[in-house]
Nucleic acid binder design. Structure first.
Lengths: 249, 249
DNA sequence: AAGTGGTCTAGACCACGCG
DNA sequence: GCGTGGTCTAGACCACTTT
């Protein structure tokens, strides 16, 4: 009696994770590392059942979570298909950035990631962990049709993630790099929006007049790594083209 | 043999809905009509099982959907608790509007809902159904601490929903009224953001100088009623206080 | 101890997609 | 016809909360 109790307890300590969580993690990693490529299908529910010696209920729980997190979509009669990118989380896009057919898009790294002091211009309160750490800062300028439209200042805690090397950026995207090389996902964001008049520094970078209206966006992105947030202060010239975002259940 | 086949088929035609969908709809309506008030607990999973003569798997499927849609949260050992409001869908809030303790909030209906022609200033393309219909227009001005901060122009298709009476607004909120009186929920939104300089009309309403920077937000809200979208063109004075929104998985 | 939600098993039948 | 995901049953044991 005592012995079986100890064994059960051991099992819980050893396993720790729920069975569906193990399957979820296994499949998620497979997607992030491109073992299961975009538009391909995961193994069928019954195959996963056999592989993990479990029942469909448990496998379906894992797949439901993957679907909720935007990694896959299910197609009745066909299978679970890997999606291109996760459900957009209110990520800001310049109108036309996605319909890239008739627009040229370019991102220039003005300042490559390097260790600095936190900047007081960040609009959000830092966590106590972050305040104790130094930070990594990098700056980018995004172009649409050779016209600069977004000036981006980005910070994150140095003790949460090493400074990314400039040549390491996957497709020039910080988020793609996080997902594919570090297996870290964006879990949500908070934004503050302001309309301001461009000062000299902003107007120089965006190639507009001083005093022209600019959209100032402050964002805190929360990630699946508990101690890693990304802070961005973004200035946009919305005269040519508005900034878009959308969200759906 | 033939007879039982027919019966089964009949059953599908009669029921049409899945069992979990019936339970979902029943509970959702209970929440929307305040039969289950905010912060109260739904009947336990076993009670619902007995009431609908089904198993916990099916009941839990219904509850999972309610949770995904932001109607309830589950508390282990306690029950399923009704939430105050649905998961914010990137709804814009003025910083301080929610922490209303130290701020006075006021909404004034400048133009009560009435039938009009669609306004060409709407930033989104209308559906063909909407174009064929007239529209309902209403205008509001929102104050924070007796300072006007948001001027709101709103339109929706007249054939999708009758014009709401001014005294019908629940807590002055269009969305609360939609949910509680019409059982219609917001399913998502698209936004376009622009920084602009206030023209005379805007500056008069917001009590700022002509040429001051204003945040222009165009929104299309999609609802659970297929033919009902709400279009809003909003102008914000962000000098005192920024506009916020957030989204999480 | 009793009740609640969380996980899991071992099945069954259905609707859909495709060869 | 066969494999896929979608729904559902009838149980079991667990962890957590409250009495």
């Amino acid at each position: 009696m005592t012995r079986s109790f100890i064994l059960l307890d051991m099992e819980n300590v050893m396993l720790e994770k729920r069975k569906y969580q193990i399957i979820f993690d296994y499949l998620k990693e497979g997607i992030q590392t491109k073992k299961y490529g975009v538009d391909s299908y995961l193994p069928s529910e019954n195959e996963i059942c056999n592989q993990f010696k479990t029942t469909r209920t448990t496998v379906r729980k894992a797949l439901d979570e993957l679907q909720k997190d935007g990694f896959i979509t299910k197609e009745q009669g066909k299978g679970s298909k890997v999606l291109e990118r996760r459900k957009s989380l209110g990520l800001l896009t310049v109108k036309g950035f996605s319909q890239a057919v008739d627009h040229k898009v370019k991102t220039v790294l003005l300042k490559r990631p390097s260790e600095q002091q936190w900047d007081p211009s960040i609009s959000f309160d830092l966590t106590s962990d972050e305040e104790e750490s130094k930070c990594i800062y990098f700056q980018r300028l995004r172009y649409l049709d050779d016209q600069p439209v977004m000036l981006e200042n980005n910070w994150y805690a140095a003790n949460a993630l090493e400074p990314m090397k400039a040549n390491e950026f996957v497709d020039g995207s910080f988020f793609k790099t996080l997902s594919q090389k570090y297996l870290i996902e964006i879990m949500g964001s908070e934004q503050e929006l302001r309309a301001e008049l461009a000062n000299e520094y902003i107007s120089d970078n965006l190639g507009i007049k001083q005093g022209a209206p600019v959209l100032h966006i402050s964002v805190r992105f929360k990630t699946s790594k508990a101690d890693l947030n990304l802070y961005s202060e973004i200035y946009c010239n919305t005269a040519m083209v508005p900034i878009r975002n959308s969200y759906f259940l």
